[in-house]
Nucleic acid binder design. Structure first.
Lengths: 231, 231
DNA sequence: CGGGACTTTGAAACCCTTCAATGCCAGTGG
DNA sequence: CCACTGGCATTGAAGGGTTTCAAAGTCCCG
């Protein structure tokens, strides 16, 4: 849904769109600062509110019965979340970084507002479509074959979504563990892939979170980075 | 979002919910029968309509630059699709089976209807949330480790979504190739996994499309089917 | 009765997971 | 101030699962 165009600049964050929705919803918004790791909404809890990430970062995930954690969405400033079909959430959302602020909108009141405000209703649909686009992007990333490709496109996706990027620098808001659970690979594989990308000269690392994209073309063009011709 | 409960009977198809939306939208619906393989909406084409699958089955997919096809949604009767953030679709939808019928709703007119019909607006949101739930399910399936698990949970998902199931019989509307592109594994792996599940006595195959779930418990409980204790 | 698409099976190479160990860093308490 | 602890990150080695290439078998439809 979102054209993952290469050099396009989607710097128009979700915050800048939906200006009407933000204004209308502001009346019922309840903002809360969150500690690192704090649960915002939890699997099995009644789904009585929608949320918008104001600042920081958060992970939406599902715990499997074997203890593995699958992150099904990474929330960045401007992103809405907390949608549910059933009466209860079937996922958990946790703040990732310390200075995370979340705005909560009681679902019932938000729906009532939308009933009398067609423009709000339209923008809420748009917001749902954005969530769909995020999931489709993630699906396409996870669906790649090698870990090198997965990690590579993850960095590109973060670069596209993060508004606080400057040039080709990306400040990852997540740990290697989070990346691993987002990409459905092991932590070791993520670490090795990053090292590999560094050695190939596609990225540069300053510390563990600071990534500089050196060769964006190679990162996005190569659908099979590191593939060696078979004969 | 959708609790993938085990023996629960989600026989309440999308068609039975959204009764109001169906009635309101009926006024602008344009139904079309599709041949097998026929394109319903295409990547790059203007996104001017929403759709609902009336009967049959369809695949929503993205073509990668290396020629690989990633199916990002499997549409079954009652499912809505065709949502887009941009002016153009960034995916393609094709009918899979011969007797596929699709209802199209011109987007502009549908939005106008929703502007004056809060109940329709609510159900359209609900419909978007259903699409989100489908994608989350797929993400969780693709995120599994072994192909055995992926194929196993795919069968369970089909069993849950297909309304025309009887008991534990599932009639797959898709080929091995489609399953492979849905699960992001190779066709050969899908074939081997099915053979494996058969040999383990978890399923039985009558022809290639007719699956009988023999041991549902083992299929859903085992998060690591075929895992062999390491010591 | 042939095509042609779909399915299955085999073998080799490759990639990822798992287990294990080390290194790094910040926060904490002695 | 410094050892200590725990979380995070990196690296190595072994084993296993998946992909790829290849070939044969199956089935449907013209």
């Amino acid at each position: 849904m979102r054209s993952n165009g290469s050099m396009c600049a989607p710097l128009e964050t979700s915050s800048s769109r939906h200006s009407h929705a933000l204004k209308s919803l502001a009346a019922i918004a309840v903002s809360t600062p969150c500690r690192r790791g704090q649960e915002i909404c939890g699997q099995g809890r009644p789904a009585e509110a929608w949320y918008r990430l104001v600042s920081g970062a958060a992970r939406r995930f599902v715990l499997r019965s074997d203890g593995r954690r699958q992150i099904v969405d990474l929330l960045l400033p401007g992103d809405f979340f907390g949608f549910a079909l059933d009466a209860e959430f079937d996922y958990t959302v946790e703040a990732i970084v310390a200075d995370t602020v979340v705005a909560a909108y009681q679902r019932k009141r938000a729906e009532d507002l939308a009933d009398h405000d067609p423009q709000l209703a339209r923008e809420l649909r748009e917001i749902a479509f954005e969530a769909l686009a995020r999931m489709q992007s993630q699906l396409l990333i996870i669906g790649r074959i090698t870990a090198l490709e997965k990690v590579g496109s993850f960095i590109l996706e973060m670069s596209n979504r993060l508004s606080d990027r400057e040039g080709d620098r990306v400040l990852l808001p997540v740990s290697r563990y989070d990346i691993a659970d987002y990409l459905a690979v092991s932590v070791e594989t993520v670490s090795r892939a990053l090292t590999d990308l560094k050695h190939r000269g596609l990225i540069r690392l300053s510390g563990t979170r600071n990534v500089k994209i050196v060769n964006r073309g190679a990162l996005e063009e190569s659908d099979r980075i590191g593939q060696v011709a078979h004969f």
